[in-house]
Computed example of a mutant assay.
Amino acid sequence: MSIKSPRSGRTGACIEKFFAEIGVPVDDPEASSRPATPEAIERVLAAAPKYGIEFIA
């Protein structure tokens, strides 16, 4: 998967806000990640346009 962001000059700040919005706190940062749920994928796809992020194949 590729991520395209037209806001290249502000990508760092935008991507941080994006991850803060879609992220889920974890109890153990050393634990392996869980598979993405359909709800998590919907949350990512819904938030992406607000930050100028486009997912391309």
Rank of each mutant, 00 (worst) to 15 (best):
M1R: 13
M1C: 13
M1A: 15
S2P: 02
I3V: 14
I3F: 05
K4W: 10
S5L: 04
S5N: 13
S5P: 01
S5K: 04
P6W: 00
P6T: 14
P6G: 15
R7I: 00
S8M: 12
R10N: 13
R10S: 15
T11L: 13
T11I: 12
A13N: 09
A13Y: 06
C14M: 13
C14G: 15
I15H: 14
E16H: 13
E16P: 00
E16K: 14
K17D: 05
K17M: 08
K17H: 04
E21N: 07
E21H: 04
I22R: 02
I22G: 05
G23I: 00
G23H: 01
V24Q: 06
V24K: 10
V24E: 08
P25T: 10
V26C: 07
D27I: 03
D27Y: 01
D27G: 11
D28R: 08
P29W: 09
A31P: 00
A31M: 05
S32K: 12
S32C: 07
S32V: 12
S32N: 11
P35S: 01
P35A: 03
P35Q: 03
P35N: 10
A36F: 14
A36D: 08
A36S: 06
A36C: 07
A36V: 13
P38F: 00
E39T: 06
E39D: 11
E39C: 05
E39W: 04
A40V: 11
E42N: 11
E42D: 13
R43F: 05
R43S: 15
R43K: 15
R43A: 10
L45H: 09
L45Q: 10
A46C: 06
A46W: 02
A47K: 05
A47G: 09
P49N: 06
P49A: 09
K50E: 07
K50P: 02
K50N: 15
Y51F: 08
Y51C: 00
Y51S: 08
G52F: 01
I53R: 00
I53V: 12
E54F: 02
E54K: 06
E54T: 09
F55N: 11
F55M: 05
F55I: 04
F55G: 09
I56Q: 10
I56A: 14
I56M: 07
A57W: 02
A57I: 01
